[in-house]
């Protein structure tokens, strides 16, 4: 093998990858301490301390209701990252993350919430994540009951999520794995709401300065663990759980994300009672063995499909040979 061939191969491999933008995350991590986190504002004194007090006062005067409008305690905030808007306009779907069981243990699944109101986007997504309010009954939230969002701040240097009722230490009965996934679930849902990628998320407990939440270190803002460590091997984005599909739409679209050892993703659409199949296909070469990637939308024609209750199953094979799946129940109507 000559030098030029090795050079060509390495460049071919490297140039195949398009890095994600991390400048915001780097800015957040290198910002002056007083601007980096709310924790910083508390200890900063002067203008920062006064500003932080104003934020708290706003929260208290809402009578306990979560505050979704962005407070602006220090300096100008970019409009790019804000989520609250006037009016009841619909926004892009938001991915809410939940914990589900896989052959390799508990992992995160994302559940896309369609046409969510801009006004209630933050509230609905974070509360769904905390409360385990999943459309799919297979999903859950490890957060203890009673934990609610109290404050939300989406600024250029990161997101701050302030919770009420969150335990500092890991409660009895909550495994370390579930505690870690609870924070991952919250961080990834917040990042999805913000729509700016893996920006740092500073998770805090209202009116407390703490180094841990559920026993998980939270001193520094969190950006989330590598996908392969926390995400389920396969997760469906569409169809939505419980989606009603009119045959007039002619095509059912299936999409999601996953990782597979053999480059294959199998999608089946079967009647719930097992009497009929509406689709069975294998997508080759889209998912990768080394990292999570998205797939679809793959279209399944609905001509000739009888109305009824169906289950959509996406299946991949793990490196150890185990088959991992995610499912959605849908109703096909005339």
């Amino acid at each position: 093998m000559n030098d030029q061939l090795i050079r060509d191969l390495l460049h071919e491999v490297a140039d195949d990858m398009e890095p994600a933008d991390r400048l915001d995350a780097i800015r957040a991590a290198t910002a002056p301490a007083g601007r980096r986190t709310r924790r910083g504002w508390w200890v900063a004194g002067g203008a920062g301390l006064v500003a932080a007090s104003v934020v708290t006062a706003l929260a208290v005067t809402t009578g306990g209701a979560p505050q979704t409008r962005e407070p602006d305690p220090v300096g100008p905030a970019s409009t790019a990252g804000t989520t609250a808007t006037d009016g009841g306009t619909k926004t892009d779907p938001v991915a809410v993350y939940f914990v589900g069981d896989t052959a390799s243990g508990p992992r995160l699944f994302s559940e896309l919430r369609p046409e969510i109101d801009a006004d209630s986007r933050v509230l609905l997504a974070i509360h769904a994540a905390l409360g385990g309010d999943a459309l799919d009954p297979d999903y859950r939230s490890p957060w203890p009951e009673g934990v609610v969002l109290r404050q939300w701040s989406d600024r250029p240097d990161g997101i701050t999520v302030t919770l009420e009722g969150a335990p500092v230490k890991r409660p009895a009965g909550l495994s370390e794995e579930d505690a870690r996934l609870a924070l991952e679930q919250l961080v990834r849902t917040a990042q999805s709401v913000s729509g700016r990628g893996k920006v740092p998320v500073d998770v805090q407990i209202e009116q407390q300065v703490t180094d841990t939440i559920l026993g998980v270190p939270t001193t520094a803002p969190l950006t989330g663990s590598p996908d392969r460590d926390v995400l389920a091997p396969v997760s469906l984005s569409e169809p939505f759980e419980g989606q009603v599909v009119d045959k007039d739409e002619k095509v059912l679209y299936v999409s999601g994300q996953g990782i597979t050892s053999n480059n294959r993703l199998r999608i089946t659409i079967d009647r719930v009672d097992g009497t009929d199949s509406a689709g069975d296909g294998t997508i080759k070469g889209v998912l990768r063995p080394d990292r999570h990637t998205t797939f679809g939308p793959a279209g399944f024609g609905l001509a000739g499909v009888d109305p009824g209750e169906y289950v959509v199953v996406a299946a991949v094979r793990s490196a150890d040979g185990t088959t991992e799946t995610d499912t959605r129940r849908i109703t096909i109507v005339d």
Binding site: A14, M17, A20, A25, I26, P226
Partner: peptide, 22 residues
């Protein structure tokens, strides 16, 4: 891209370089 050639994982590579910049 340099890091990805070394760690075989894009997200890990981005983490590595992000930390290097910090």
């Amino acid at each position: 891209r340099l890091a990805a050639l070394l760690v075989h994982d894009q997200q890990a590579a981005e983490d590595v370089v992000q930390d290097a910049f910090v």
